[in-house]
Simulated scan of single mutants.
Amino acid sequence: MSNWTAEELHKLDRIDEIRVAGRRKDNSLRTLTIVWHVVVDGSLYVRSVRGSEGSWYKGVVRHHEGAISWDGTTREVNFIPDDSVDDQLDTAYLDKYGNGPDTRAIINATAKATTLRLEPR
């Protein structure tokens, strides 16, 4: 269950990019990496355009904890694998980012396999 505020979701839905970082074993954060994101049904989602080989993705799924940053705001999050709304996410990515090659890469099977729902901690 998402506990983002309505204001956070509104801002997140309107901006093009966020930065994500996984948490290391020593509890420090990895390097923040820019990713595309979408908001669907009150939840925030990301995918790795490089699939499971993406370095940021490897970092966040190691402990499923980390942080995101946008417009001067940083939130601690859990990264939860969730393919339950993949078709809606594809539509949301196309609506938000257009139908160019970058968007097609984020809605292909390789990227879909990395769908993560971000829940604030």
Rank of each mutant, 00 (worst) to 15 (best):
E53I: 02
G72A: 00
T110N: 12
L44Y: 04
P81V: 05
I18P: 15
V40K: 07
D82K: 09
A109L: 12
L118T: 08
T31A: 07
I107A: 01
V60L: 04
L94R: 08
R47N: 03
T5A: 11
I107R: 08
G100T: 02
G100W: 01
S55P: 03
E119K: 15
N99V: 04
S55I: 06
V49R: 13
D26E: 00
L32M: 14
P81F: 00
K96M: 07
H37E: 11
P81W: 00
G66P: 07
T114K: 11
P81Q: 05
D16I: 03
D90P: 05
V39H: 13
W56A: 00
H63V: 00
D71F: 01
I68F: 03
Q88R: 13
R14I: 02
L94M: 09
L32R: 13
E119I: 14
D13E: 13
A111R: 06
R19M: 09
A6P: 15
G22M: 08
E8H: 10
N3R: 11
E65C: 03
L116A: 01
V35W: 06
P120N: 10
W56K: 06
Y45V: 05
P120M: 07
L9H: 12
L12T: 12
D83Q: 12
R75P: 05
K58A: 02
V77H: 10
T91N: 09
N78Q: 11
T31G: 12
W36G: 10
V77Q: 01
G22W: 08
A111M: 02
R47M: 04
D87E: 13
D95V: 09
T91E: 15
L29K: 04
F79V: 07
R104Y: 02
D16M: 15
S2M: 01
V39G: 09
R47Y: 02
V46Y: 00
Q88D: 05
D87L: 08
R30A: 05
V35I: 14
D16E: 08
V35Q: 09
R47T: 06
D86E: 13
R19N: 13
R23V: 02
D71A: 04
R14A: 15
S69R: 09
D82F: 00
Y93F: 15
